[in-house]
């Protein structure tokens, strides 16, 4: 088994509108898979389908190399949108009830409470918890039964900066324990710190799937060149600099990864070929910029 989740052209249609459109992703074992997309892009619908809360219109998906879906879901912990808690119960009672349902050892409750920082909540009912505390308890409930795969939809929503750092550390710790994590989040900067693989989704479609290494190659400092003939300029610049890290944006702008030390020489080369250079400058392309750009291209 080399993958934990594999979807094949997963599609969900609501009144002739495709909310999830032919999404094929593969989450490998040990990955922290960052699922990136704007509000309404279809992230939560995708998660709801794989967790059995909604039925797909088309396509297939499987867990752990094709295990029976109901059996497989026993090894999956999840937090979907806002945490669903029994608000008339304390944090311990919520976890206790969940342990009873899953038939797991209740000794893990203390460990989970400590892990998510809710040891001191005592007899306080979940309805009196702050948003951040509810989110932590939601993550705690996902951890019951020591699942191999965690699916977390916006897990750091409502958390304060300290809480965000704690959850980040917790997720990295879980990854080191061999767990696979699928995490959807708006906090692109946070995702960048932990994800090993990304899926970018826009308008229900998977725009791009890439590894953290591939992302880092596409980000960082770059030189932006505006010309009257992008195709020809790309060829000349690639040849002159001896690099393949030259790309053309949707608006015809030329991007060269890493900054060019001798801008004058490049401009001269383009001029010799009869290409008009209307602008040349350095800028920085963060992962966040990259994600936004890819999402907006759709």
């Amino acid at each position: 088994m080399d993958y934990v989740l594999k979807t094949e052209k997963l599609t969900k249609e609501y009144s002739h509108t495709k909310v999830v459109d032919s999404i094929s992703v593969t989450v490998k074992q040990g990955d922290i898979y960052g699922f990136v997309g704007k509000n309404g892009a279809g992230k939560t619908t995708f998660i709801r389908i794989v967790l059995g809360l909604a039925n797909q219109t088309e396509g297939t998906f499987e867990f752990f190399g094709g295990e029976n879906l109901l059996q497989a879901r026993k090894h999956i912990g999840s937090l979907i949108e806002s945490p669903a808690l029994y608000t008339n119960m304390t944090a311990r009672e919520n976890l206790n009830m969940f342990c009873t349902m899953l038939g797991t050892d209740k000794k893990e409750i203390d460990t989970i409470l400590e892990t998510v920082g809710l040891v001191d909540t005592g007899k306080k009912k979940a309805r009196d918890f702050s948003l951040g505390m509810k989110q932590r308890l939601g993550i705690g409930m996902a951890l019951v039964g020591d699942p191999d795969f965690l699916i977390l939809d916006e897990p750091i929503n409502g958390l304060d900066p300290t809480g965000i750092v704690e959850i980040r550390e917790l997720l990295l710790k879980l990854k080191n324990q061999g767990k696979t994590i699928f995490i959807s989040s708006h906090y692109l900067g946070e995702l960048e710190k932990i994800a090993t693989r990304y899926g970018i989704i826009a308008k229900g479609r998977l725009v791009e799937e890439l590894t953290a290494e591939e992302l880092s190659k596409k980000c960082g400092k770059r030189t932006v060149i505006k010309t009257n003939n992008a195709e020809a300029a790309k060829e000349i610049v690639s040849k002159f600099l001896g690099t393949d890290k030259v790309s053309i944006g949707t608006d015809g702008t030329l991007y060269v990864q890493d900054t060019i030390s001798d801008i004058g020489a490049v401009t001269n080369e383009l001029f010799k070929a009869g290409i008009v250079v209307s602008g040349i400058s350095d800028d920085e392309n963060s992962a966040e910029d990259y994600f936004i750009k890819r999402m907006e291209e759709q």
């Binding site: 967790l51 109901l70 999956i76 349902m101």
Partner: peptide, 14 residues
Amino acid sequence: SMGTLKNTLSRGFS
């Protein structure tokens, strides 16, 4: 209405 059913469904209960 509280959404707690998803906890049960997502854990492999039919």
